[in-house]
Design a protein around this nucleic acid. Structure first.
Lengths: 335, 335
DNA sequence: TCGATGTGTGAACACGTATTCACATAGGGG
DNA sequence: CCCCTATGTGAATACGTGTTCACACATCGA
């Protein structure tokens, strides 16, 4: 009978704090703005009232201001199955937090249609970071239309801030290492063809082989996963028993290849067969694997992404910069 | 000389679309609101103009409305070193996207001071999800003060929506399995004591042993990482050579233990020594490990978290619910 | 004393949207 | 013709904040 329908309890607002402290609403705002004119006693009185009421400035409303920033950054990345993506995303996340940004994480790829990416552009993001290379160019178009800075990593996009490992040189280093120790019958276990990195590494592999006057014995495909690395290598070695060196498109595939070579074919690694991966994820150094690999420097990549982001926020009209990360060989027990 | 200082280009606004289409600003808003009164031709004219100008409703401004939601959910989780946290966070992320929410990811713990968590409460979040159990109760207090729904997983919090595996029963199942196959000299390699799950698993281990009239031979500590699992087990077996079964606080630790047992002590697993992990992360089924473990059902956990979230958003005053996930034994090659 | 400078303060506005309100128009039944 | 309902529509408002504007007041140098 009595009107029980109550309104949803709202968040405490600056107006209420002002009322409680007996000051104007503007004063409350100033109390939370460093460097604003406000007498010391009034400020402490306001902060005390805010504390008591549990007030906290609403970041959404603040982000709506003329020169306000939302401090939100969307990070689009690949699947968890790819340990490298997972590790670098975590590092990037911490870095963003360190500079006062919050990351909205979109990870796919199966559920990550391009449409889903465009949906997140409804938020006035400080930036969109594309990690990994399977998304189309139209995302870049919509970003520029909405004045949302775009930073790409894992591939190069002309005119756009990009940070990317030199995949071809990485492949060349791997081939040089393999050839230098006498391997002549080399095979490649690749990744998904739609991925920029997988394509580049394959091309670098072929080019480097040709420079030595060699040709690849075989190519196998995978999806950058352990399971398919295992399966592909099992088949590869069955059909090409004379292969003495395998270059894998990433570390997880290389781990699958290692297990397949040892367990399915009884091969001795590295005496009998060399295996080289790509990325140098943290698991590569585990005693189980001791994987020789090409280091794809995550810390340097994250560092440069953050630098480009900060510089872009300071200068909207800066010309797009491209950063190439140099890969290097990490010798362990599989070569 | 000529005033070159241009204003920062803004995002296209509904006002500009209205002007371009020759309608009122309200009409533009209605064009993007399903079920609002708007003639068909006017709607299509507006959508066309919006398309041309690259307009997209600003989610921040929309979230500021009286009954609006930000559709932002903060997810606080543990370190990447913990594969389980990493995998379940990814699944949770996809689930949230599926129901139209965006996740702001905070992952620690080293950089993840409690203060940092409180900072993100500046946003009017639809909910805060705490995954993993190292954060204090004061976060819950601030959430309730700000009317931000809280969902906890990985630990139980009275009166708060919680989803958690029955860690003690999981440990009991592991002990029962080990004892049933004749193991009598059991040891435990634990995790960080500040983690709820690690404490519960240890207590479950002791209780279950006592129920069999046994006592633990030894306890070793780790930080839930592979490296410390390896190191702790190396030392453990050196000091207690008669140990014939090791229960590990999680799978990554168990993998470290497995490598240590085989490589440092030449033990045959499982003939000579049984090893049981906890969580059943995806790597546990890799041929390298074939780890026998206790399944900590991620899909069920995520499912329940999402359900609790939806129900909470529909009914602010619903009483806090607790969901306990049943663990089960997954036999593989290490026991 | 006067003007200039520096400090403190509240009123007002802008940000971009969804929604309410008031009003128009049209159509149908009496 | 009039009343009533259904359907469109624009003006106005609320959302919560940071910041500008105008003004008051005190201090200081001349």
């Amino acid at each position: 009978m009595s009107g029980l329908k109550e309104t949803k309890p709202r968040r405490v607002t600056a107006q209420e704090v002002a009322q409680a402290a007996g000051v104007s609403r503007a004063a409350v705002s100033r109390a939370f703005t460093p460097g604003a004119y406000l007498s010391e006693d009034k400020k402490s009185r306001i902060l005390e009232a805010a504390q008591k009421l549990g007030y906290r400035p609403n970041a959404l409303a603040a982000g709506l201001q003329r020169k306000g920033r939302s401090n939100l950054v969307a990070v689009v990345t690949g699947d968890i199955a790819n340990q490298f993506d997972s590790e670098i995303r975590a590092k990037l996340n911490r870095g963003l937090n360190r500079i006062g940004k919050w990351s909205i994480v979109l990870e796919g790829p199966e559920d990550m249609s391009e449409e889903k990416i465009l949906e997140v552009l409804a938020y006035p993001l400080d930036a969109l970071i594309l990690r990994g290379g399977s998304v189309s160019e139209s995302v870049a178009f919509h970003c520029s239309q909405l004045n949302i800075p775009l930073i790409v990593s894992g591939r190069l996009m002309p005119g756009v801030d990009s940070v990317c490992c030199d995949n071809r040189q990485g492949a060349r280093i791997a081939v040089d290492q393999l050839v230098a120790s006498g391997r002549r019958n080399l095979a490649y276990v690749g990744g998904l063809n739609r991925l920029y990195s997988a394509r580049e590494r394959r091309q670098g592999f072929e080019t480097a082989l040709a420079a030595h006057g060699l040709a690849a014995v075989a190519f196998a495909k995978s999806d950058y996963s352990y399971a398919q690395g295992y399966e592909a290598t099992t088949k590869l070695l069955a059909e090409n028993p004379h292969v003495d060196g395998v270059f894998c498109s990433n570390d997880v595939v290389a781990m699958g290849a290692l297990a397949a070579a040892q367990q399915e074919h009884g091969r001795q690694v590295p005496e009998d067969l060399s295996i080289v991966g790509f990325d140098d994820i943290s698991m590569a150094s585990w005693p189980d694997f001791q994987l020789s690999t090409i280091k794809n420097d995550m810390d340097a990549t994250v560092e440069h992404i953050l630098r480009l982001l900060v510089e872009r926020l300071n200068d909207e009209d800066k010309v797009g910069e491209t950063v190439v990360i140099k890969p290097e060989f990490v010798p362990r027990q599989t070569h």
